[in-house]
């Protein structure tokens, strides 16, 4: 019985092994295990100075890509945080009107708000609190006390079941003189438009980096083929198939792509940490003062963000493998 179980286990392992080998074969990467363990000896000569320079250039491109990805993640996170806060709240503003008692107007408005379905709570800002909001623009002093300052009611709404804003706006307008409802949609729209523009810029940068990396790999593959012309000719004459030669060249670029990708992720994460620490120490952590809260720890990359960064080495390896393969096969197609 146990023997039978053991055999089943073995056959499962064999099947898994076969599937893995098929996958590597499909990706033309049968040398992958040996490449990772260092036991595979390439038929092509070891890396030259130009090979090391190529690694540095590809690493620089990957580093820029990592920074663009970090920027994209932070912008996304910040926009989500801002819009989530804003979406939960609306504000009722009551301007002073001659002949009307402000406190009475506030009571009427609060009553209307509390009786409206979809409103969770209301908080009326006191006159002092309203004045404090104006202090950054008008300064402290008796001047403010003499000004007719509008009063604000902060309203928390039920996001899943929001009130009918148009109807609420009309009711407030009819029953409370000088009242207006601000749903912050305009501000939210501006934020979203700005964030989308920034995201498009970072995606554009990523696209440019990818195109540049592909161009670099094409150039480097051609150079590698030219400098190894004699080796490739001998390989052909002893019966090597194009796939075999392509695999040898791909192995070289696989290592370059993997090294460059991983180094760039580490450098990108270090840059993120050091920039965050620098901005925190330089500007402080108050978001209202700095406007850099996404870099000062209030919006972090998060575990998923760090995982997403590893798409850069993955994409680099894929670019290196496919580009070098296509170039090698095209060159070999022109050789007998």
């Amino acid at each position: 019985m146990s023997e039978g179980f053991s055999q089943t286990g073995d056959s499962n392992e064999n099947a898994t092994e076969t599937r893995f080998q098929s996958l590597l074969s499909f990706l033309n990467l049968k040398n992958l295990p040996g490449l990772i363990t260092g036991s595979y000896i390439s038929i092509l000569p070891a890396q030259t100075k130009s090979g090391r320079s190529l690694t540095i250039v590809v690493t620089a491109m990957c580093y820029l890509a990592v920074l663009a990805v970090i920027a994209n993640i932070l912008i996304n996170g910040s926009v989500q945080a801002w819009t989530a806060d804003v979406a939960k709240q609306v504000t009722v503003q009551i301007k002073p009107v001659d002949g009307e008692n402000m406190n009475v107007q506030i009571e009427i408005a609060t009553a209307i708000l509390n009786s409206t379905r979809g409103i969770v709570s209301t908080t009326t800002l006191s006159n002092e609190e309203s004045l404090r909001l104006l202090e950054p623009w008008l300064g402290e002093g008796s001047l403010l006390a003499d000004l007719p300052v509008p009063r604000l009611i902060s309203v928390v709404i039920d996001e899943k079941n929001p009130p009918a804003f148009d109807e609420l706006k009309q009711r407030l307008k009819r029953k409370v003189k000088g009242a207006s409802l601000d749903t912050h949609k305009r501000w939210q729209g501006q934020i979203l438009r700005s964030a989308n523009a920034l995201k498009m810029i970072s995606l554009g940068i990523l696209t440019l980096i990818s195109i540049t990396t592909i161009a670099i790999i094409i150039f480097a593959t051609r150079a590698a083929m030219a400098s190894n012309e004699e080796v490739i000719s001998v390989l052909h004459l002893v019966g090597a198939q194009d796939n075999f030669i392509a695999e040898e060249v791909q192995s070289r670029f696989f290592i370059i792509g993997l090294k460059a990708g991983l180094i760039s992720v580490v450098c990108g994460i270090l840059t993120y940490i050091f920039l965050g620490l620098f901005l925190t120490s330089y500007f402080g952590t108050d978001a209202d003062q700095t406007g850099f809260q996404f870099l000062t720890g209030q919006t972090s990359l998060g575990f998923m963000g760090f995982l997403v960064l590893f798409t850069v080495p993955l994409a680099t390896v894929i670019i290196c493998l496919t580009t070098s393969r296509i170039v090698v096969l095209r060159i070999l197609a022109g050789v007998l």
Binding site: I43, P45, E230, V234, H236, L237, G239, L336
Partner: peptide, 25 residues
């Protein structure tokens, strides 16, 4: 077709006058 040449080349052994050994191996 050139894709069928390697199979034939594998049945042919060649000693080149200039040897054509790979120096890094």
């Amino acid at each position: 077709p050139r894709r069928e040449l390697p199979a034939i080349r594998r049945r042919i052994g060649v000693v080149f006058q200039e040897f054509r050994l790979l120096n890094h191996l």
